[in-house]
Write a protein that binds this DNA or RNA. Structure first.
Lengths: 119, 119
DNA sequence: AAGTTGATAAAGCGATTGGTTGATTATGAG
DNA sequence: CTCATAATCAACCAATCGCTTTATCAACTT
């Protein structure tokens, strides 16, 4: 069975998927509604096959789901997958920020919570 | 000069940087405070040189900054960089989610805002 | 049945990635 | 000055990435 928390492998794939400008543009386009490979390929100077592969990468990362409509295979964004990414990032962003805040308090002579070891 | 908005290239590097489990573990460790290469390398079964490269990748992505302490070069997390990533993701996540909400309204016969074309 | 449209599969190619080993640079300690 | 420590540089290697071309599959149209 698959865990409810995002696995390392899923995070690998999801972040990797978003590390490409074409795939991010596809995500941006899909945020405004589902689209077919041909529609998604239109703005780019690459072949449909390449776009098809990009979509496959996004799908394997769980960021995109696909349905069926005759010959067409419309792709749609999976917002929960994006949410999982922000959740991961925020975990460490918030920890860091609160640590900085405590440090600022110490420097300002306003220790509101016990400072933690640094280094 | 560098733009205030995150550039494509910065997003490329940042997402790519987080697409590796070792680098994500480094980020997790750094969220609890700055650390040196040796400290960061300790939990991993790879060489210090490899970890050094991973840190360089995170630094080039703007996710990590480095300071000086004698021979040591402590790395620290840059929370603003993480914030920029969540900002990018949320832009498209929220658009998608609100579109879904409108669609749900239509299906439930409670159209609260004009539905948009869906193909 | 034949043709058209939408999408994928397969094989190949140059560039990049993550890792190694070995040598080198920088700073501090004796 | 000499030695030890922390980190990086350089060269190399196997694996993967993004993309292309060619061929194939699947479903609708006439």
């Amino acid at each position: 069975m698959s865990s409810s928390t995002t696995t390392d492998d899923q995070l690998d794939r999801a972040f990797m998927a978003l590390a490409d400008p074409v795939r991010r543009a596809i995500v941006a386009r899909l945020s405004r509604g589902a689209a077919t490979v041909n529609e998604l390929a239109e703005p780019f100077a690459i072949t449909k096959q390449a776009v098809s592969k990009h979509i496959a990468v996004l799908e394997q990362a769980g960021l995109v789901s696909r349905s069926r409509d005759a010959q067409r295979r419309p792709a749609a964004l999976v917002p929960e997958a994006l949410e999982r990414l922000t959740a991961w990032i925020d975990t460490y962003r918030l920890t860091t920020e609160s640590r900085f805040r405590r440090l600022d308090d110490v420097l300002a002579g306003t220790p509101s919570s016990p400072p933690q070891e640094e280094r």
